[in-house]
Nucleic acid binder design. Structure first.
Lengths: 208, 208
DNA sequence: ACCTGAACACCGTTCAAGT
DNA sequence: ACCTGAACACCGTTCAAGT
């Protein structure tokens, strides 16, 4: 691994360990044994280093989604699995999740980060589109429906992270909300009336 | 206005003008003609001052929602108007919106902020519940449905703020996405197939 | 009770200098 | 080409001192 990659790895670990505030250039440099401004030889600024972490994470998420899209699961379950990827990521790496979907200043930088984000989201949209083609999801334009679904997932994750959702609903898991959404959207409306989703095992959206 | 209120007002104005980074205690103090650490006589920390701004804003939003709930509009339009309140707020005061729904460190403080947030969200839930009682929205537990709808709105606002939604969909307005959601959720499914919402006039969700 | 001014321990960033 | 160390202009926060 070259210095640039080691800096990105160190920054990611600091994000996981102490949140964004812990990612000081002094701490990143120290973590890999260089001075506090060696990073400036590889990244134009602190934000540029953070953007590099986000770019790498977007590619990881996109790869996971590609695997799911190729799987033999039913459309409903494929969508739930895809959402599970980001739920897990948000729980395992909250600060890095915020970097992906919650950092206007970073997102506005454009460049490779925006490309990586667009590619990842297009895979997610394809998973939704597959479900529409199979007649399971309504025929709204697939980009719109995918954004709606993803926005809901992101909103639930975000509300959960801020603690507001938990206190209001007592939901143990974000996934329950997403299961309800998928059922509400599904052309099979038989489960809607109850609105009750079964309990899910930790970290995994339950099969339908 | 006492010093404490003037500090909150000054902080809110700085948030609007320059985002969270612009809210330094030196700038806040200077804005009302006191020293850079006079705020410590009224708030225990910078975060405490920011929490006071958020508390005040939650109360403003709650008041607007109470008015909408009392209105004679149809349930669908009441919900769209309620969502319009937060969309407008997010566009007029992006940094303050982030303080309300996007700041785990601030939200985790609890106290009056959490109370104000809970009260506001309970009014929103009541608006959704009214629609369910009228048979317009599905009968999922009202708290769950309200959180789902709000999470979607928040997710769309957030995606819009981060620039990702706009580039992927070209939607001029967040509201279009919410109109689609409300139609998808409504028991009247006649509009679902097209998924096309009419254009809306700026800053106002169109009547159905 | 409320405020001030100096001070402390941090930041990100710049820059001249080294190899 | 890559890195270092000093320096600069900021921060939030603390503290002794003022009225």
């Amino acid at each position: 691994m070259n210095t640039s990659e080691r800096l990105v790895t160190a920054a990611a670990e600091l994000l996981d360990a102490g949140g964004e505030a812990a990612v000081t250039l002094r701490a990143v440099g120290s973590a890999i044994g260089v001075s506090h401004n060696a990073p400036y030889k590889h990244f134009v600024s602190r934000d540029d280093l953070l953007a590099a972490v986000a770019t790498s994470d977007f590619r990881t998420v996109a790869d996971a989604w590609k695997q799911i899209r190729k799987s033999v699961l039913k459309p409903n379950q494929r969508l739930l699995d895809a959402l599970d990827v980001v739920i897990r990521f948000s729980q395992d790496h909250p600060a890095r999740y915020r970097l992906l979907f919650n950092s206007p200043a970073i997102a506005a930088r454009g460049g490779p980060l925006t490309s990586a984000a667009d590619e990842a989201l297009s895979v997610f949209a394809a998973i939704v589109e597959d479900g529409q083609a199979a007649g399971v999801f309504p025929a709204a334009p697939s980009d719109h429906l995918a954004v709606l679904i993803f926005a809901t997932a992101h909103g639930l994750i975000d509300a959960d992270a801020s603690g507001r959702l938990r206190t209001r609903t007592g939901w143990a898991e974000i996934g329950t909300g997403l299961q309800i959404l998928v059922r509400l959207l599904s052309n099979d409306r038989s489960h809607v009336a109850s609105g009750q989703a079964r309990r899910r095992r930790p970290g995994r959206l339950e099969r339908d």
